[in-house]
Amino acid sequence: MSTASVPVAAGTLVRRKPPWAVRRRRFLVAVADHSLLIVVAIIFLTPFAFIVLTSLMTNEQALSSHLWPSPFRWHNYVDVFREAPIWRWAINTFLYSVLATLGVLCSSIPVAYALSRIRWRGRDLAFATVLIALMLPPVVSVVPLYVMWAKLHLVGNLGPLIIPNWFGDAFSIFLLRQFFLTIPEEYLDAARVDGCGELRILATVVLRLAKPAIAAVALFSFLYTFNDFFLPLLYLRENPSHWVLQIGLSEFRSLHQVQWNLTMAATLLVMAPVIILFFLAQKAFVEGVTLTGVKG
C-alpha cells in the first residue's frame, strides 16, 4: 500500500489542468459515486442500529412492529448480567483467546524463522507440509481429535482448544515466513558479523523488523479464538462452567427463556470487545488483512 502513493504523485506532476467541461463531468461522477457509497454504507450500518434499538426496548416492543423504543429501557443492560453469567463466560473467553494467541506466537515465530532465514536440507519439504495443512479444512480432523481428547479426559475444559495452538499454526507460520523473507539479508549479516547467534538475531533484529506481521498474527489469532464457536461447541457443550461467550450467547435464549430485547443486548455486549479492539488497533488490522491478501 505504501508503494501506491509514489506513482500517484508522479502522475499528478505531468497532468495538465483539464478543461471545464471535463471537470464538471468528473465532479458529477464523483457525486454519484459518493451518494451510492453513502447509501450502501447506511445499509451496512442499519443492522447495528436495529440491534442497539432493540436492546433498549421492552420485550413486548421487541415483538411488535415498533422500530423505536419508547420508553428507553437502559435497565436491560443490568438485567442481562443478572440473567446470565456473562462475566464467567468472558473470563473463559479471554483465557482461551489470550493463551491460544500466546501459544501461536511462541510456537510459530521460530518455525517461520527456520523456514525462511536458515538454510537446511528438507526445508522445502517442511514448508510444503505447512502449505498442505493450510489447505486442509479443519472440519476433517475433528472426529479423531475429539476421540483423542476424550481418551485423555480433557473434553469439557479449555485444554483441547488451547493446547494445539502451542504447536504451530499453519496460517501464522505461512504469513510470518512470507514477511521474514522480505527482510533484507544485510540486516541479518550485520548482526552475524557482530557475533550474534541465530537466536539472538531472531530475538532482536527479526522480531523488531517484523512487528507488523507479528501484530497481524496476534490480532488474527485473538479474533479467531474470540469468535470461535465450532470447537467450543464440541468440547465445552456439556460443561456450562467453562462456556465461552459465543456458546453462552447461542444458548442464551433457550437457557433463560429470555426475550429478544435482552438477547440483543447480550449480542451487542459480545460484539463490543472486538469492535473496541478494532478502533484501538485499526492500522494493524488493515495492514494485517492486506498482508494476507497480497502475500497470498
Binding site: 479426559h153 473434553v155 456439556e238
Partner: peptide, 18 residues
C-alpha cells in the same frame, strides 16, 4: 443441581467421560 440440560449434552458428557 445443574439445570438447562438437554439430551445433546447428556450424550456428549457420557461419550467424553465427564
Amino acid at each position: 443441581v445443574v439445570g438447562g440440560i438437554n439430551d445433546d449434552k447428556i450424550t456428549a458428557a457420557i461419550r467424553s467421560g465427564n
